[in-house]
């Protein structure tokens, strides 16, 4: 790790100001950034920790929405997001206890790892990512591997999840990292069904349109049994071929519908 300055602002406004410095980088729970820095693969001059900003931590109901502060650790979501059980379950199965007590929802979304859990929940729920200066719809937020709509220095202050009628998250573990080898989040609302897939695509989290159409017409596991996923564009690596991941998308979608 190279030397760096650490700043710990107490408000979003202070954080925005601190992030305007040259080579400044926001620090959420540090579950990706700190290992990268230890490996000397990342070398920010200033780390701006968001973990002391009280207004960004916590889970609350706001009408039909569940609102989660951007600096809220997974463990807190697991415990306090009971109004949205599929989301609480997802948070409670990220990594291990150490990861869940440090890692934050905002950090996960801003990083947009193609195998992370949260992006699928945000996309399937049709959630809104709220930043220090705007609101971004889920469909506009994720822009491919490790890429999002966030501008430099922009901070995710909270995420607003409309609570669906039914939902389930089915994760198939990559055996080493225990990230999602492939995972599927299915959410059913009055407006239809949304299916978001993480871990599978070379372009990061995506919605499976065919399944959404089939499930909006008939919310049953066998509604997707006749569909198929094109292996082209899927991730192929030592843990699973493209065809294997395409298969998992379908299998896990069916299981999510059954479990929802």
């Amino acid at each position: 790790m190279y030397a760096f300055e650490l700043e710990k602002p107490a408000t979003v406004a202070e954080a925005v100001k601190a992030l305007a410095q040259e080579d400044a980088q926001a620090l959420g729970g540090g579950q990706t950034l700190i290992p990268s820095m230890k490996q000397r693969l990342a070398a920010p001059a200033v780390l701006v920790s968001l973990n002391g900003i009280k207004e960004m931590i916590g889970v609350r109901k706001d009408g039909g929405d569940l609102v989660i502060g951007g600096a809220t650790p997974h463990a807190v979501v697991a415990k306090e997001a009971g109004a949205y059980p599929a989301l609480a379950g997802l948070a409670g199965n990220i990594g291990d206890p150490a990861v869940r007590n440090r890692g934050t929802i905002g950090g996960s979304l801003a990083n947009n790892d193609p195998s992370a859990c949260y992006p699928s929940a945000v996309l399937a729920s049709g959630a809104t990512v709220v930043t220090n200066n705007r609101q971004i719809a889920a469909d506009d937020f994720f822009e491919g591997l490790f890429t999002t709509a966030l501008e430099p220095g922009e901070i995710i202050t909270e995420v607003r999840f409309p609570i669906p009628q039914k939902a389930s998250y089915q994760k198939f573990l990559q055996p080493a990292s225990r990230f999602a080898l492939t995972a599927v989040f299915v959410a059913k609302t009055g407006g239809g069904v949304r299916v978001a897939v993480t871990g599978a695509s070379e372009d990061g989290v995506f919605r499976w349109a065919d399944a959404e159409a089939a499930l909006s017409a008939n919310f049953a596991a066998d509604a997707v049994s006749g569909l198929s996923v094109d292996p082209e564009g899927m991730i192929g690596d030592m843990h699973g071929t493209k065809a294997y991941r395409a298969n998992l998308v379908k299998v896990l979608t069916g299981r999510a519908v059954s479990a929802a």
Partner: peptide
Amino acid sequence: LSPSRVWA
């Protein structure tokens, strides 16, 4: 015997 190999 990874899941992918067994499935294949």
